[in-house]
Amino acid sequence: MFPTAIEKTSKLTQTTYKAALPIAVLLWLLPLFAVALTSVRSIEDLNRGNFWGWPTSLNFVQNYTEVFTRSPMALFMLNSVIITLFAVAGTLILSCMAGYALAKYHFRGNLVLFSIFIAGNFVPFQILMIPVRTIMIDWIPLYDTVWALVLFHTAFQTGFCTLFMRNFIKQMPDALIEAARIEGITELKIFWHVVLPLVRPALAALAVLEFTFIWNDYFWSLVLVQSDEARPVTAGLQALKGQWLASWQLISAGSLIAAIPPVLIFFLMQRHFIAGLTLGATKE
């Protein structure tokens, strides 16, 4: 283990380490603590410039209720949920199929196709911006609906997910598939009954990862959506900032509400999340 395990060091080092750890966490998350504290302050506190002190009154219920009554926050959250769930489902289905085809079938152009999926996943969004917006306005009239975002996220995230699934399935032994073939099971049934049950861990990892990616998207919600009816919570929050100006207690409360779903998903499925994120970080 590196660095040396703390249990093997002097008593003084151990005590110092154990004291430093919570302080480090506190400093690292200082901006978030300030926001959490502000979200329960009264407007009087803020006007008096009491940002860092203890709140004179706890306005938790009042502030958080106000966010929902004074803004379409509930609608923004609902939009985000719809966009995220459908796009994650869509991209998982597409990439699972494509990943298997690229991992276990040998055909000409396999590697080229795979490279295109990898490369496409890195392109800057701006090179896609104008044409994708034009498609959503002229060809597939979904502009300014949540479905425009669902469709685009599904398509774009397929690049990363196919890379991920292909590398995962590639590691599965060929013998499994060969054995099924000798039994006379058709190819599609092999995919359904043999491959799919085995890729569940990869699907779980991808699902949580994609959930946070898509939930947190801001750029495309600016480009493909313009009315409150279709706005996800990221763009909604930015719009509210313009309306609420110095009502920092409301902006803070809104920020925390927007942050809760991905944070919750992360804490509940931490193992899968990190497994997905660090794929390839441990082996060459």
């Binding site: 199929m97 494509a98 085809a101 999926f117 896609l128 994708v132 398509a155 190819e187």
Partner: peptide, 23 residues
């Protein structure tokens, strides 16, 4: 089989990523 499995992903990726780059 591989053609069927690849088709949906390839189609959406082509429409929303590959072609827009050239456009």
């Amino acid at each position: 089989t591989p053609l069927l499995l690849l088709l949906p992903a390839a189609v959406v990726f082509t429409i929303f990523v590959i072609i827009p780059i050239f456009q």
